[in-house]
Structures are given as C-alpha cells and as structure tokens.
Design a protein around this nucleic acid. Sequence first.
RNA 1: UCCUUCUUAGCUCAGUUGGUUAGAGCAUCUGACUGUUAAUCAGAGGGUCGCUGGUUCAAGUCCAGCAGAGGGAGCCA
Length: 468
Amino acid sequence: MESLKRTRIAEVLRNWQAIGAGNMVNLKGWVRTKRGNKNVAFIALNDGSVIHNIQIVVDLAGFDEATMKLITTGSCISVNGILVESPGQGQAVELQAKEIEVYGTADPETYPLQKKGHTLEFLREIAHLRPRTNTFGAVLRMRHAMSFAIHKYFNDNGFYYLHTPIVTGSDAEGAGAMFRVTTLDAKNPPLTETGEVDYTQDFFGKATNLTVSGQLEGELGALALSNIYTFGPTFRAENSNTPRHLAEFWMIEPEMAFHDINDNMDLAEDFLKYLVKYALDNCMDDLEFLTKMYDNELIDRLKFVVENDFQRLTYTEAVEILKASGQKFEFPVDWGTDLQSEHERYLVEKHFLRPVILTNYPKHIKAFYMKQNDDGKTVRAMDVLFPRIGEIIGGSQREESLEKLVTRCREMEIPEKDIWWYLDTRRFGTAPHAGFGLGFERMMLFVTGMANIRDVIPFPRTPQNAEF
RNA sequence: UCCUUCUUAGCUCAGUUGGUUAGAGCAUCUGACUGUUAAUCAGAGGGUCGCUGGUUCAAGUCCAGCAGAGGGAGCCA
C-alpha cells in the first residue's frame, strides 16, 4: 500500500475544500458500520477526532472478497482514497477507496458494541471499549476541552498552577474518610508495645493517606505567590453510592491572597461562566449530539447560565425563604441545621430558577479554617448550587487570625501538632485570603447533560469497583 | 450505610390469576438487491429465565438468603 501521511477525519471534514476534491488522502480509524450490495460498500469510519464519521465508498470490483469480509463493525483500517464531493445525501464529502489495509479485525460474534444504542449501564461494564462510542467520544473530547479551559483561564488571569501532594501525612483536612497508603505487610504489620500498628516503621515513618483536598497546601502557595490553583486527583473513602460521588475524582482548587468572600464569589461565578462559554464556543458538535440524544434543554441551559447572574444570598435568608415557601419537605428546615438536597434543589430549581451562591453558614456545620464573622455564629463559607447537580463548589474566606484559628482547632479537637506548618502561615506574615474547590466531574455533568458521574470520567472508581 | 426497584438470547425488552416445546426487535450467519445513511427484503442459528435453597402435582412467575445493577437519602466536590 502506498505510504501517505495520515489526515485526521476532523481535519478532512473541516478543511476538505482546502485539501481539494480529487486529491488522494490517507485516513485511519475504526469502522462503525458497513453496508451495501454486491457492487459497492459504504463504510462509516470514525477516528475519534470528531463525532462525525466519514463515508468510505468501496467499489468492490477493485477489492478482494477476503479483505472485505474482515471489515466489520469495530475493526480498524487504513484507507488511501480520493476525496470527492458526495453524490448521496447526508454528507458533503466522502472517500473513494483505492487501497485498504486492515490493522485489526473485530469478530462480530464477540465484539460487544453494536450499531444500535446501548444503555449507559451496559457501557460501564465495558469501560475499556466505551470510548469508541459517540457518547463517550463526545464526553471525553469535552473533558479535554474543559481541562484545557481551566488551565487557560487561570493562566490568563495571573494564577500559578501549584502541584500539591497526592500522599499526605496530615489527617486534618476534615473532608471525609481517607485511603491509607502503606508498604507494611497487611497480614503481619509491626506493632508498638501497646499493640497498635507501628507506622514509624512504614515507608514515610508515619501514617499516610491519599489526599482528600489540596487546600491546606494550596494556602501555603497563595501566601507566597498571591494566586494559585491546583488541579489534580482527589480521593474519598466514603461509602457513597450516588450518581454524584466518586472515590477518585478531580478537583480544581484556586486560592487567592488578598481576596475576601465577595472576591471569592466573583471569581467562582466568572470562572464557571468562562468554562460553560468555552464549551459553547468550542464543543458545539459534541453538545449538539448530547442535546439530541440525552438532554433536549442542554444547550439552552448552558446559554442561560452564561447570560444570567447567579443569585447570591445568605444561609439565614435561604432558611427564611424555605420556611415561607409552604413546601412540604421530608426534613424540616431550621436555622442551625445543614440544608438537605431537597432544600437546595428547591432554591435553585423552583424558587430562583438559576445558580445560587449561599454564604455565611452557621459555624458549627462548617470546617475549622473558615473565617469567623463578627456575629460569633456564622462563618464566611460559600456554596455554589447548580441545577441538576446541587453543590458544585464549596469554598470560603479563610481565618487569617492565628488566635481565632487555634481556638477553633481546640474546639473541634484538631491536633495542632499535625498542622503546625499550616498554623505557621498565620504566625508569619498572615494575610486575608480565600479559595474554593470545584468538583471537575460535577462540572462535566453540567456541561455534558449526563446524569451519572460514572459516565463523565473514563474509568470510574466507586465502592466495590476498581475494574480497568 | 439505609430505603426502594430491577436481573429472561450478544444488546434492548415482553412473558396474563403458577399450567404443554419461553417470545419480539435489533445484532450475528446464509441468500437477494447498481449509491447506502441505525440501508432494505427473505431465511437460519442462538436460552442452566442472576445464584442457592424452599413451597407446589407443576415455578421465568410464589417465599427466603446471597450477588450484581439502577433510583432516592446520608457524607461531600
């Protein structure tokens, strides 16, 4: 077969006029369908560069039957052919095949992906193959686009990307159960005199875990570089079985010196709108597919979020609205208790009909590091609530006073010796600062219209499941 | 972890108050068709009804346990 430089299908469909009808190109990809008759075969070829397939037209007189039999749904081929304007409906251009090489066959009796639709549940069981479907191609391309947009936004706005550790020796982040990291023999660990596992003999000389948040280290960076962000994997060993939780997920955590809670809200809103707009500006092919197949209101909802202000109000105001709503809630609303999902959904989806930012929560339901308000009862926390998703961002202005922070640690029984380095930032050159955490997969749920978080990450890790 | 629903062909599903040999669409295979668009048409093959036990003359169907999956809740991002 003549050696030609491969052209991506996205490139052909976008620039076929520049490439020029009548010219020979090489395309490589995976066969979605083959149909036709004795004289001509039509192959829908996809290489993942774009959601659309390109049609390969094969005049069977020029090809041997044995080769053509190998070309089935799922097989991988390389084609040299002439790019021509298509006489048929449904595509502008197609490729008149001259030479075909079969790279890999896919036995139709055993290849699990068919031409017809599959349920998302079934595709989760074959997560190694689901990237080859239209849906996961769209989701994974958008996942890349969103990742890129995150870095671009922060870079363009004077933030530095800080790599916070994955393995942490601190157990004080207060963000839930952790995965232990150890090289000790699980069957026969060294013990102390009192019979406890002796972690001084472990790899790091102490008990270590996978991080549940990069925030504490992020603050160290912000109190030197002014504006930093993290974007990395995060782990929670909670036994959560919901469409919104993963044991391994990706989180974006900006942290800004000299920002108060209002600056923090401004940034969160601007950032989220930027990401949604980036999707609308750069992922329209995939968005149109997802809108058509999964969520008819997706594109409209994304546009609405970009064009409208988020509703900002305090926790106390939210409680008053909920109490006055006349709604029957399963859980009663009362000042001092954390809001339940049903309450958040009511505010976002029934009352305000737009994203909501809640601030100034009671201090006893929030983390130790949040800045205390002068009322002695509330802290400068903020939660951003999105339609369909619920909490997409959690953040706060941080307590910069050493005295108040230490007092709060003692009240909440957080050992100061474990976070001496964190407390040092308040001891030496402390500054007002703020930050938040955005769950990347929750953002992906919103921009793709997918309903289950396991369908917006390539290989989901959930309780009882670490396959692939 | 709690509540709830589901598990029948490769996939998506039907299967009546328990009653002969468990069905359909798609997929697969064979054949037909000169340009198809999830091609179409004709035919064929394909099942330990999630697993284990129980009730019954008789269980895909009723009961119990277990496993897996979905939805809701909690924890949160």
